[in-house]
Write a protein that binds this DNA or RNA. Structure first.
Lengths: 152, 152
DNA sequence: TCATAATTGAAAAATTTTCATCAATATACA
DNA sequence: TGTATATTGATGAAAATTTTTCAATTATGA
């Protein structure tokens, strides 16, 4: 399968706004509506596009307080790691969790209402998970850039 | 405007899959197609939904190497901060940039092909920005959880 | 009770999807 | 080299589906 310049542009457009009609895209790409349709189906089939989602305004739903939490486990046995990852993935406030290199084991992105609810999250949800050694939290003062679009 | 339990469910569904038809949603929500249509329009109008996007598989487009970079500026004058933020936002490898509390000033999420291209990114793009004092990079070993959906 | 807001089903408009056909490109072969 | 033959991708028209509009009806709250 050949992924060409048109496919790249199409991915750009769909990453920016997936609600554009095939007719709009066909104008931008100088193709017929059917050609656009077939290319999109191909991108979906070949796994370039994972899914289509609505992005929600976190201010509007009262989840504008963003924190990053570093976490160290007390031990790194298979059992502890699997358990921790399973538990942390279940917490709705945790949108992202990465196993990372460096001083800490994990980096979490956490969305809550405010500092008070962050404390609630730490006490009631995060630190109730077993085997956590230490944590270190950083709070987002300002979101300078935030995109889901991969620019290839 | 009243945001009720049905709106919440609707936001959940649209954050999970925005390509569902209003008919499918109307079945799940036990509403008519038009009621679903009007509620979605309301969510868009009131700013609950920012936009609709396609999420791309980073493995498929060769951007599977994820790093988080901490950055400290040499100074924090208005001029330096503004300049840095403007420049870093332009770099396509940087998907996210946060001004954060703590030992470092910024946290960046960076997507590249591999370690070699990460080095290229650091040398050719990031550290060519003026006023950067120090950096500290962490590499993602495993993505345990990654969602764009805010669970309210 | 009245006014407002939300829901419904039907109709209209628009979009997606299918399909037969055509054009361009590469491949096989004499 | 030149010709026949798949193969791939594109096109426009038609069919199917979905979105959008609209008038009427039902809830909801002051």
């Amino acid at each position: 399968m050949i992924f060409d310049a048109i496919d790249r542009k199409l991915l750009d457009y769909l990453q920016a706004d997936s609600k554009q009609t095939n007719k709009e895209l066909s104008n931008k790409l100088n193709l017929s509506v059917t050609a656009v349709y077939e290319r999109i189906k191909k991108l979906e089939r070949e796994g370039y596009i994972n899914k289509y989602v609505a992005l929600v305004n976190k201010q509007q739903v009262d989840r504008a307080f963003v924190a990053f939490c570093h976490i160290k486990l007390v031990q790194h046995s298979q059992e502890y790691v699997v358990k921790f990852e399973k538990e942390v993935a279940k917490i709705k406030e945790v949108l992202e969790c990465y196993h990372i290199s460096g001083d800490y084991d994990y980096l979490l992105k956490v969305l809550v209402k405010d500092m008070h609810s962050f404390r609630e999250f730490m006490v009631k949800k995060l630190t109730t998970i077993d085997h956590i050694g230490s944590t270190h939290s950083m709070f987002v003062i300002n979101e300078v850039k935030h995109t889901t679009a991969i620019n290839i």
